[in-house]
């Protein structure tokens, strides 16, 4: 039956066209998801929330058992670090006070890029196919979560808010290979080196910090933090440590391989950071990403 076959072929072709159109539509920079999407995500979020609690309490129990086994060793290690910590804390307090005093003397207003307000949230879901690495959290626009805010765990930066609905939001992790995922960062050292986090090496599980000027000497093991110059993220969020440095293709820039401070696999509680100093208008009118202003 050739006619019958043709009908199916046409249906297939039409659906392929629709597929391409839909993918194109959703890859475009969208300020906001359409309301049916938001509604669906919130509804799914409600169910995820409801199921998450009992399931996580069961797995939490087993994790606790696991933790108990390592407690002795960890305790030993932590004790040795404790003295160090106290010393560090007093030093930081002293420096903070000195900084404030000096600012007062200079009559400088409060314009610290690292100032941010915090929203605590629980992770209730994760994209199961794990290509575009995303997690779902149980706070949304009602709680003050907005597009492009920085998200961190106690260990360091993990990503940014990709979309926010009324009661839930999606967070895109740093490990997702989205070409639009860019963060302005600093490598701390005697002389700060600025660059942009662009991409993720899936094989070695390292972040790529690109566009560092070629004449900067970057030491291995130096810390990498956000610079706050991208306009959206606050300054001083921990990203990770430099593992390896390479000259790029044309020798004009260097690329540093950064080992993330956080583990992108085991995330249960996150903090969303809203920068107190608003981004300049220019940065906002752009494509809604952490720009590459860090050079």
């Amino acid at each position: 039956m050739p006619q019958f076959f043709n009908k199916r072929l046409i249906l297939l072709l039409v659906s392929i066209i629709v597929l391409v159109a839909l993918i194109g539509f959703s890859l475009r920079e969208r300020e906001e998801l359409s309301w049916p999407e938001q509604f669906l995500k919130d509804t799914a979020g409600w169910f995820q929330n409801a199921f998450h609690k009992p399931v996580s309490s069961v797995t939490g129990f087993f994790e606790n058992l696991n933790d108990l086994q390592h407690t002795y060793d960890e305790n030993k290690k932590l004790k040795s670090r404790l003295d160090e910590y106290v010393k560090l804390k007093t030093e930081v307090q002293d420096l903070k006070k000195e900084n404030d005093d000096l600012r007062n003397i200079l009559n400088k207003e409060k314009d610290d890029l690292s100032e941010a307000s915090r929203i605590q949230a629980t992770v209730i879901g994760r994209n199961p196919d794990r290509w575009n690495e995303m997690i779902t959290i149980n706070k949304g626009t009602l709680h003050g979560v907005e597009l492009d805010m920085a998200v961190e765990t106690s260990e360091g930066l993990i990503g940014k808010v990709k979309s926010s609905n009324k009661f839930t939001s999606s967070i895109q992790l740093l490990s997702s290979i989205d070409p639009k995922n860019r963060i302005s960062a600093v490598i701390q050292g005697n002389e700060d080196a600025y660059g942009v986090i662009e991409g993720y090496d899936e094989k070695r599980q390292l972040l790529l910090l690109k566009r560092i000027p070629f004449d900067k000497k970057v030491k291995k093991n130096s810390n990498v933090i956000t610079s706050g110059y991208g306009g959206v993220f606050p300054r001083r969020l921990v990203i990770g440590k430099v593992v390896d440095v390479k000259l790029d293709q044309y020798g004009l820039n260097q690329t540093a391989y950064v080992k993330p401070a956080t583990d992108f696999y085991d995330i249960s509680n996150v903090v969303i950071l809203k920068r107190d100093i608003p981004a300049p208008e220019e940065g906002k009118s752009g494509t809604g990403q952490e720009g590459d202003g860090g050079q």
Partner: peptide, 10 residues
């Protein structure tokens, strides 16, 4: 697609 991947269509 809507809830998890945010890339519609696949």
């Amino acid at each position: 697609d809507v809830v998890y991947t945010e890339i519609l269509g696949i």
